[in-house]
Write a protein that binds this DNA or RNA. Structure first.
Lengths: 136, 136
DNA sequence: ATCCTACGATGGACTTCGTCCAAGTCAAGA
DNA sequence: TCTTGACTTGGACGAAGTCCATCGTAGGAT
């Protein structure tokens, strides 16, 4: 994720202060923020940034494949900046913590042809659930 | 799912016409309805049923383990009445249709010990995504 | 069979999450 | 530096879901 800004410029992005700030927020720790959390952190550096712009920018990053949308048990979507390395998620049923994990094997290949019902299967999302050491 | 009403009564549910209708809607075809779709179908049989009651009843069925919530990205939750047989989901990225599928292989076993971070992993949820024949 | 009452249903207001749009702003090429 | 069209803004809007005061009724008690 570290040269995100460079890659975006290379793709012809007009670089605005708003987009830079959103990208920098995601480029920080690899936590999984909601759109509103991204907006909150962005607003610390650029107080007048609007919610609509944060949503737009996140949506564009998702389309570009730089960020993943993670569906959660909770409500708001979360954004995962670690999109370039394929990975899955391990969620604590107690406290909701999310960790990135890297299972072995080929989950898409595990779905037999006769179970695909004519779908063009493009991706697979795996969520492991269990209790973390602190909650056990 | 076929003796759902009996099981619910056995658990001390007060059986009301509303709850019966919601349970019967789910007991029908094994599709994955949204709460509003459940409400719509329930209202065909019991026109004055309220949205709040449908939400309440679905929530109770989830807590009782009779129905699963299927989390979808950016869409309304869907309810899966096939909770008693383990299975995974195939979701159309276009229209949101959900199908039950049964992959081969052991996804929990695919998560190496050193990727578990001390979690007691109890379950795994797999969602395959792609375009259905109609949307392709 | 009828009465009581606590549990459940109702519906409308409210919240949360997200999208849309018209008007204003500004990055970057000429 | 000028120009222009892509970007941003904020507020209205919409969808999904929750909350709550009040009313209704299932099912045990009499």
């Amino acid at each position: 994720m570290s040269d995100l800004l460079g890659r975006l410029r290379g793709r012809g992005w007009r670089m605005t202060s708003q987009r830079r700030v959103v990208a920098e927020v995601l480029d920080g720790d690899h936590v999984h923020l909601t759109a509103d959390e991204v907006h909150l952190r962005a607003a610390e550096r650029l107080p007048e940034i609007s919610r609509a712009t944060v949503y737009n920018t996140l949506g564009e990053l998702v389309v570009l494949g730089e960020v993943l949308e993670v569906s959660t048990v909770g409500r708001a979507k979360r954004y995962d900046p670690n999109a370039r390395r394929p990975h899955q998620h391990l969620v604590c049923s107690g406290c909701g913590t999310v960790r990135d994990v890297h299972p072995v094997g080929n989950a898409i290949g595990d779905l037999p042809e006769e179970e695909r019902f004519g779908f063009a299967v493009g991706s697979v999302e795996i969520t492991y659930r269990g209790l973390c050491p602190a909650c056990a």
